[in-house]
């Protein structure tokens, strides 16, 4: 029982990271129908900026977060304008935007590689007061606990905002049909840039926390989560914010259970069997948000 609790908590910690990554990624995907793989690079750069601020200027983690979110958000907005925007009117917009975004991913990761000189760095010790907590039989660090609370809180806020605010309504209108939205007087460009900013800011925040909690700053940090985030999205339901949370947590917990109860070597098999199973049986995921209507 104690072991089960411990592995469940471990799974929730891991899953909340996946969820935070997947929800930012999925936000762009759902509202603009863009497979924006450069999101991975924006995530990496979030970690790099956080690392730079903490090492060079000696800031504590909490102070860097707003700056990192702003920087990553703006980087993602720049990605929208330089990589995506000019392609949206094309007949093959989805494919063109994916490939362009992939080009952006390659460039951003490579620049990070040169900057870090190919090395794996870590956040300086003491940027966040990390100490082990023992809650009954369960061990968790203060940082991990903070991460879970922040992730779930932010995703809930995002889901609420999408459903109940004017901005959320505008995003959903643009998601349904860009042309109609523009006829309705919505500034589609502004909404799109806003979505990219929010998505990038989420990625930056997640990256700063991940880099601190897991002691890794490297050029491939974001790319490492790309495939697992895709899995979380498939399981949770393409493009649903709540789905990203559910999918992320499910994958996180499934992988720690596989590690804890089967054998650590089965972890990836379990995760990908889950993924394949959803693709075959329920390709729309747990949270089926929108039917694929043909538009004529």
């Amino acid at each position: 029982m104690d072991f089960w609790l411990q592995q469940t908590v471990n799974g929730i910690v891991l899953g909340s990271v996946y969820a935070l990554y997947a929800s930012g990624f999925g936000l762009v995907m759902a509202s603009l129908r863009i497979f924006h793989v450069a999101h991975a690079a924006v995530f990496t750069w979030g970690a790099v900026v956080a690392w730079d601020l903490t090492t060079r200027l000696g800031w504590p983690l909490v102070a860097t977060l707003p700056v990192v979110m702003l920087a990553a958000g703006l980087l993602n907005v720049a990605a929208y304008f330089l990589l995506i925007r000019h392609l949206l009117k094309r007949q093959d917009a989805e494919l063109a935007a994916f490939i362009s975004s992939m080009g952006g991913l390659i460039i951003l990761v490579e620049v990070a590689h040169h900057l870090l000189d190919g090395a794996v760095e870590r956040m300086p010790a003491g940027v966040f007061p990390v100490s082990p907590l023992e809650l009954g039989p369960v061990r968790i660090t203060t940082l991990h606990a903070t991460m879970v609370v922040v992730s779930i809180g932010l995703i809930a806020l995002l889901a609420w905002g999408m459903a109940h605010t004017q901005a959320g309504r505008e995003v959903r209108t643009v998601a349904a049909d860009r042309e109609t939205a523009s006829l309705l007087g919505i500034n589609v460009d502004r909404v799109s840039a806003g979505v990219f900013f929010a998505s990038g800011a989420l990625a930056g925040l997640a990256a700063a926390m991940v880099a601190t909690a897991f002691n890794v700053v490297s050029a491939d940090l974001g790319s490492g989560y790309l495939v697992i985030a895709l899995a979380a999205m498939v399981v949770g339901g393409f493009g649903s914010v709540a789905g990203a949370l559910a999918g992320g947590l499910l994958i996180g917990v499934a992988s720690t259970y596989a590690t804890g109860y089967l054998d650590s070597s089965y972890r990836d098999l379990v995760v990908f069997a889950l993924l394949l199973g959803f693709l075959v049986v329920r390709p729309t995921g747990l949270f089926h948000t929108r039917s694929e209507l043909a538009r004529v």
Partner: peptide, 22 residues
């Protein structure tokens, strides 16, 4: 269809990669 198909196909390649290792 569309990006969902792309994601599913990338996921497929990943499943093959993991399967090959195990």
């Amino acid at each position: 269809n569309g990006i969902y198909l792309a994601i599913a196909s990338i996921a497929f390649s990943e499943v093959v990669r993991v399967a090959v290792l195990n």
